[in-house]
């Protein structure tokens, strides 16, 4: 049970504990890195090159868990998703539904992207690309705002106001928004600068 919200917890998934952290959503990046490096120095397989097979295996497993914990907790978005998972929730697999407050923005951007895609002559479509760049800034601003919302949500959890403030549904909605904006930004960038295929 989660001490804060009374929800179920999956103990084997506790990535906070793997890094020796209390279960708090607001994480200080330098502190996180310090712990990761510190633990890594102690348990990494390179420290046990001449140990028995069992110790090597334990070190390998421990380090794999450690790197996973660091990777998941370092990024606020993935940390939030992990928090949902801890509370038995997750984002819908197919995140196609446009969050209501983003509808107007998304509609406008998609339309312009479609137009650019259809434009045969890339040089003549330069004004269009310019307009999309301006929209990109708007999307970026919406992203910044969503990130701030996420930060506020995190802080509220840590203050223990989960029940009162409806934090779980809020967290889910904010994460959905960020996921959506992320996809949108990627679509824009792909259209503006087609990626080079890697071998």
């Amino acid at each position: 049970m989660c001490a804060r919200c009374g929800g179920p917890l999956a103990p084997e998934l506790d990535l906070f504990a793997a890094l020796g952290l209390a279960r708090r959503l607001v994480v200080e990046p330098t502190e996180l890195e310090r712990r990761y490096h510190d633990l890594g120095r102690r348990i990494h397989p390179d420290r046990f090159a001449s140990s028995s097979a069992a110790v090597k295996e334990a070190s390998l497993q421990g380090t794999a868990l450690l790197t996973r914990a660091y990777r998941v907790l370092r990024d606020p978005m993935s940390r939030g998703l992990y928090w949902l998972e801890l509370h038995g929730e997750k984002l819908a697999d197919n995140n196609k539904q446009v969050p209501a407050e983003l509808a107007a923005l998304v509609f406008e951007v998609q339309e312009q992207l479609a137009e650019l895609r259809e434009a045969q002559d890339r040089s003549a479509s330069e004004p269009l690309a310019e307009a999309i760049r301006a929209w990109r800034a708007e999307v970026q601003a919406a992203m910044e705002q969503a990130r701030e919302e996420l930060g506020a949500n995190f802080a509220s959890w840590d203050e223990g106001r989960a029940e009162a403030a409806n934090l779980l549904p809020n967290l889910k909605a904010t994460l959905a928004k960020i996921a959506y904006l992320r996809t949108l930004l990627r679509d824009i960038d792909r259209e503006l600068e087609p990626p080079v295929l890697s071998g």
């Binding site: 020796g20 102690r42 069992a54 110790v55």
Partner: peptide, 21 residues
């Protein structure tokens, strides 16, 4: 025979690091 012992050592290494918090 020594596998459980080895695992305890690993667990302790992790715990010790945690104790620094």
């Amino acid at each position: 025979l020594t596998t459980p012992f080895a695992q305890r050592i690993m667990e302790q290494a992790i715990k010790q690091a945690l104790q620094q918090k």
